[in-house]
Simulated assay, not measured.
Amino acid sequence: MSIIYNDLHQFSNYIPPIDLTFHQYLLLTDEPVLVHTGSIQQAEALIPQLKSTLNGRALKYIFISHFESDECGGLSLILKHFTEAKPVCSEVTARQLSGFGITNDVIIKKPGEKLIAGDSELEFISYLSEMHLWEGLLLIENKRGIFFSSDLMFRLGKADGSVIDGNWKEEVSNISHMQVPDPDKRLELQQTLEKLNPKFIATGHGPCIRL
């Protein structure tokens, strides 16, 4: 675990066979927000770290960008330990979660909507996740300028606690068909992201990016 940016804590797991690092994040404000759960195995390791970092505070929200094992595979386990936490996701993701018996207190958000979480302002952006082009969500925390890029902007390699310098416009222009296969939807997403002005990219994989 490392404090990666202001009050943003990063939890990481490196998988050597695929040379890829998986990150989860805790925005530790007066209404703490967890971004992604990791797989069930990653969540088992994450839970004691979360409890230690929260230090008695209640976990308020769990943001899920899209339905995939490293984004929400450990959700049911984490909810057993943090019973007051509410998942936040798209309508499509909520339907998938319901198929696994997770139906209570899910907060469904649409692109353009916001959620005020204490002193955080969370804004949601449309994201067609690459597996099935299901409607997911990207997240930006407006007051701190933190953009959570999910699978959009990432690099291979071991990257726990790593931060590199980058350029927002270059990162947006480098979004490829590997991340969003539909060319029209990819262009639409890039045009939406170009209007943002984040200060920091909290990546799902690889080093974070200071802008």
Rank of each mutant, 00 (worst) to 15 (best):
W168S: 09
E130G: 07
S12E: 09
L75Y: 10
G74A: 04
G99H: 15
S76Y: 08
R186S: 09
E141F: 02
S173T: 14
F82L: 10
V35P: 04
G99T: 11
S162P: 04
R155Y: 14
F200V: 06
D119H: 13
Q96E: 15
S162F: 05
L54W: 07
C208K: 00
P87A: 04
G166S: 05
S65W: 07
Q24R: 11
N55R: 06
Q179G: 06
S173L: 14
E84M: 10
D70P: 05
L133Q: 14
P183W: 12
H81F: 08
I18H: 02
L137V: 07
K80R: 15
N197E: 12
E135M: 11
G101H: 13
L50W: 00
K143A: 10
W168G: 08
H9C: 11
N197D: 11
G161H: 01
I146M: 02
L152H: 00
E68H: 06
L50E: 05
C208M: 08
F67N: 15
F63Q: 00
T37C: 05
P181V: 13
H205V: 00
N13C: 13
P32E: 04
S65A: 13
S129G: 06
E194M: 15
D184A: 15
A45P: 01
T192Y: 12
F124H: 01
E113S: 06
P16D: 04
S65I: 05
E44R: 10
I175C: 07
L20G: 01
H132F: 15
Y61N: 05
G56P: 05
E113Q: 11
Q24V: 06
H132S: 08
D151V: 00
L138R: 09
T21P: 03
